[in-house]
Design a protein around this nucleic acid. Structure first.
Lengths: 207, 207, 207, 207
DNA sequence: GATGAATGAGTATTCATTCAT
DNA sequence: GATGAATGAATACTCATTCAT
């Protein structure tokens, strides 16, 4: 992902919060960041905005996150933790050998759902991302597991399973991104979800 | 496109260049902007950077472009002018009733080509865009013409031509964007172009 | 007052100082602004100059005053608060029916005193003033109260009390301004104060 | 006048225009400067504005005036030349021993007239003035001649002719300035002219 | 731990002035 | 002589980050 310069920075939370109170503060700050980033974009958001939204002082914010990037990193890590589980569920379905329509529908529903929750934040991860390589690699690994599951699933079904698997994931992610972020006027998102499923199914079955 | 706030600003070139020398300067500045934006991103780029790259003083830059946004606008207008022609060519092919494989291949080749030239700049147009509504509308109109051509083309071939046309354009644009911007390690772009064509063809023929 | 364009800007202090330390800072900054404006004029003064003079960083200055104008506004408000009291004292004297010589002397002494403290700053208020209408109105109201007191005072003494009252205030203000700002070489200010009193007294008694 | 820093600069027209055409250009530029300064103020006016208003290129403007200040200087010189004559007329009247009412009226009418023509420009001369000492001295000399005439005139009429003469000139100039620039709502300028005359007459006659 | 006051490098933009054509 | 393109020092203002209380 990303591309373009990535300054070398500390991204780790500065101190691992120990007490319950401070763990709560970390949570509040992170949620505030999520909301303000989502609403205003990464560059447009100031750390003061986030602190204000969180109802803490700017000093407290920096107590837990050494810089602005670290907030995004924290958010991305939270995101990663969230998708880890549901990705695993998908992998299981594929490995269980559900019919293609089910496999496709599940994958599409899953990724559209992921984007619907916070489309702008998602965009920020992908586009504005001052994310450290390690995290991008983590994400790639996660996605890779799903891709490999699809590859296994497709081995007996299409001629070029690796390529088709990659296409499927690219398409779903990319369309989910676009359709949630810029919903066209003439169809609603559910229709697009269905259409995406249809298209992929045709692709797989033509395979 | 876009999303998130858009300040209201003047974007028109400030001064119509009269002498030949200044027309050249405008060109040089715009090209420098394209290169620096492409390399470093919009926010990260300084107007000083652009002036330096263009080999002119910062004052000269502002003589022709009243602010940073205006440079991006200038670039987008140039882009618009470029694609207008080639889009028209595509529309003609579709209306001439070429076979589906040709129609699909042409569309895919066309949009991948568009992105290959300056993928980051493209991303900036789509994501960072402080572009005035008028220009976005211009672009939408252009894209709309192609989509309608596809819709006409599909009327006799699929059940929901409007939806399928929109899907095709979404997919091609979106994959071209992603694949040129973040080329995965295991396949090259040509392979993706072919795969994209295959997928769409299957979709249309399943129609 | 004023004349010539007045941009529409926020002038309110940006942040209400909470801690004692910051209240002191605000004071220091304002006083620095007074001194530098007085010495160098409004346009010639740089916000950096003021910050340097105040011994704070430029960021601190902007923490409390959102822009350069706001500093002048702050100064003017301070000025307004100062004169409010003494104007009231004058009004009381007039309403108490002191003899004309006393009334005149008090008015003259008062306004000369006002200008002597910071003649250039005064000029800036009057001439360079990017002051919001509200404040100018506040000042006009204050001056108006004094003028009306004079008008009441003159009702039984001259034929055109409103006109004469206005003339008196115009003259005193205007001469105080000029004589403190550009003291002529051949007489000192006290002499001018006396002469101003004499002149007005003659005017009133001729009335 | 003036006060506050005065940068040391060339103020002379850069080349004495010889040919008729260029003399016309100088005239046009100067008139343009007068109009734009009057309308927008000195600081707010750019040399480009003046060139545009004059209908010449910026290069041409600088051919005749080496910098922005020089334009103001040119304007002031023109002003000086204009008042020289009329001041002389006043001096003659005073020396001819016209009655006090006539002397006063003439002086008042004269100076109000001077300001009425271009009150803002006048203000600029007095307040924004980056005028070289020499010119200020020239003006002082001119004013001095009138003041001395008044002093002579008053020798037999008042106790302190020098002081009274200076007061008269201060008052007239200063009130003319204020009343033309900020005419109060309740009386018109003619009324103020009359009132000014009345006041001075009372002052002289109280002697 | 928390607060919020202080910091200052960084950036877009202006405009008087110069100089090649 | 005239033009207008080019110059670049100067300046207001922001915002991520630090640190005294």
């Amino acid at each position: 992902m990303s591309g373009i310069r990535t300054k070398n920075r500390r991204h780790e939370p500065r101190k691992r919060p120990i007490q319950a109170r401070s763990r709560a503060t970390v949570e509040v700050v992170l949620e505030a960041a999520a909301q303000v980033f989502e609403r205003a974009g990464y560059h447009e958001t100031t750390t003061d905005d986030i602190a204000a939204r969180a109802g803490v002082s700017i000093g407290t914010l920096y107590q837990y996150y050494p810089n602005k990037d670290a907030l995004l990193v924290g958010l991305f890590e939270r995101h990663l933790a969230e998708i880890e589980q549901s990705f695993a569920g998908l992998v299981d379905q594929l490995d269980a050998g559900v019919p293609p329509r089910v496999a496709t529908e599940a994958t599409v529903a899953h990724l559209y759902g992921l984007h619907r929750a916070a489309p702008n934040l998602h965009r920020i991860f992908v586009e504005d991302a001052p994310l450290p390589a390690r995290l991008l690699a983590d994400y790639a690994a996660l996605e890779g597991r799903l891709r490999e599951a699809w590859e296994r699933y497709l081995t007996t079904r299409v001629a070029e399973p690796a390529l088709v698997a990659r296409m499927i994931l690219s398409v779903v992610e990319t369309l989910a991104h676009r359709h949630t972020l810029y919903p066209p006027p003439d169809f609603d998102i559910d229709t697009f979800e269905r259409a995406t499923t249809d298209m992929l199914l045709a692709y797989v079955q033509a395979g």
